[in-house]
Simulated assay, not measured.
Amino acid sequence: MVAKSDTAIVLMNLGSPDSTEVPDVKKYLLEFLMDKRVIDYPWLVRKLLVGGVIVPRRAEKSAEAYKSIWWPEGSPLIVLTRQLQKALQHDLEMPVEITMRYGNPSPAATFDKLAKEHPGLKEVILLPLYPHYAMSSYETAVEYAKQIHQRKRYPFELKIVEPYYKRREYINALAESMRPYVEQDYDYLLFSYHGVPVRHIRKGDITGGHCLKVNDCCHVDSKAHTQCYRHQVIITSELVAQQLGIPKHKWGVSFQSRLGKEEWIKPYTAERFESLPKEGVKKLLVACPAFVSDCLETLEEIGVEGKHSFISSGGDSFTMIPCLNTHPLWVKTISTLCREVMEPVSA
C-alpha cells in the first residue's frame, strides 16, 4: 500500500453551474463553450458566436433545464462525484479529491488544497471521468490540468490515467450495472453517447488517412483508434452487449447533444427516438456510457425530453438506465486504474 502522504487521487469531471440562476448558468456556458477544444474556431469567431449568439439564446432555457433536475443538495453531477469520492476513499489509504474542467472546484483550487494539506505529496493521479478519448472531453480535461500543474509549479508529479473504454474492469462494471434492466422485458437497447462534430473525428485522426476514409474504419486496426471517439464508443458498446448476451438486432448506438447546424456523427439520438417506434420498438432501454455520473444530459435530455419524444412517437415504455455513479464495481475499477500508474514507494 502506498503511504498516505506520498500519493493522492483526483477525480476530474465535466462540471456544473454553481446554481440554477441565469447569471451562474451564463458564466458556466461561457467557460465551457469558449474552450477551443469544444468549439474549435479562431478565438474572435468563437467569442462572437458564443458570447453574442449561443449563450444569450441558451442561458435561460438551460437554467430552466437545470432547475428541472437539480437536487436539494445541489447539482446532481457534483453531488454524485462527491459520493464517488467518498466511496473511493473507503477503498484507498490516500487522499481522494475531485475537480471539474469547468466551474468549481477548479484544478487550481484542488491542487492548492492538496499541496497545503499534504506537504509531503510526491504524486497526484488524475483520473478523468471520461472513459473515451475526445478532443472536447478527455483531451481538454487532461491538457487543462497539465497546464495548471505546470504554471503553478506544484512540487508533486502529475500522472494521468489513460482512456479505459475497453478495459475489462470498466466493461464488467458497466455491464453489471445494466444487467438488472436487460433482464426485464424490453424490445431494444440504445447506447446514446454525447456527440461530436464530424470535423473533430477527422481532426483527431493522428494518421491523417484513416477515420471516415477507410471502409468500416472503426473495425480496421489503426493507430488512429487511440484518439478516435467514434471507434472507442462502438467498441465499448460491442463489449458490453457481448457480456450481457444481447443479440445484434436488439441494440444500437446513437449520438446526442448536437450543437449548431454542421454535421455531427450519426445516427442522432433525437431522430432514433422518433424512428424506433415505427420500426416496432415499443419498450426501449437507453444507456449513456459516455457519462459516468448522471447529469443534465442524462436526467433531462434523455430522461425527460427523450422519453417524451419516444412516447409521443408511438412508444409504450421508456427506461433510462442510470450511469455508473457509485456502483461498487465502478469504485473498484477506479481503484485498479489508479493503482496501476502509482510509483512504488521505496522502503
Rank of each mutant, 00 (worst) to 15 (best):
V2R: 14
K4S: 13
S5V: 08
D6R: 12
T7Q: 08
I9R: 07
L11S: 00
L11F: 01
M12T: 11
G15R: 01
D18G: 11
T20V: 15
T20M: 12
D24I: 09
K27H: 14
Y28G: 03
L33I: 08
M34R: 13
D35C: 03
Y41S: 09
W43K: 11
L44H: 08
V45F: 12
L48K: 02
V50E: 01
I54N: 11
P56M: 07
R58Q: 13
E60I: 09
S62P: 03
S62C: 11
S68Q: 15
I69V: 15
E73H: 07
S75F: 04
L77G: 02
I78Y: 15
V79L: 08
T81Q: 04
T81G: 03
R82D: 14
Q85V: 06
Q85Y: 05
K86H: 11
L92P: 00
L92T: 08
M94G: 08
V96E: 07
V96G: 05
I98N: 09
M100P: 04
G103M: 07
G103L: 07
P107L: 03
A108E: 15
A109R: 10
K113M: 14
L114H: 05
A115H: 11
K116M: 13
L121S: 03
E123P: 05
L126C: 08
L129N: 05
Y133C: 00
M135N: 06
M135H: 05
S136M: 00
T140H: 01
V142D: 01
Y144E: 14
K146C: 12
Q147A: 15
R153P: 02
P155F: 03
F156S: 10
E157N: 13
K159Y: 11
I160F: 09
Y165K: 01
R167K: 12
I171T: 01
N172S: 15
L174Q: 11
E176T: 11
M178P: 02
P180W: 01
Y181S: 05
D185M: 00
Y186R: 03
Y186N: 01
D187N: 06
S192P: 10
S192T: 15
G195E: 08
V196L: 15
R199D: 14
I206Q: 05
I206E: 09
L212S: 09
N215S: 10
H231L: 05
H231F: 13
Q232I: 00
I235F: 09
T236Y: 02
E238L: 14
L239R: 11
V240A: 10
Q243L: 13
V253M: 00
Q256T: 07
R258N: 07
K261R: 14
I265M: 05
R272N: 10
F273S: 02
E274H: 10
P277D: 04
K283Q: 15
L285H: 08
F291G: 00
S293R: 01
D294V: 05
D294L: 03
C295D: 02
C295E: 06
L299K: 04
L299E: 06
L299G: 03
E305V: 09
G306L: 08
S309C: 11
G314I: 02
G314P: 01
M320T: 15
M320A: 12
I321D: 03
N325T: 04
H327D: 14
P328V: 09
K332T: 10
T333P: 04
L337K: 04
E343K: 12
A347E: 12
A347L: 10
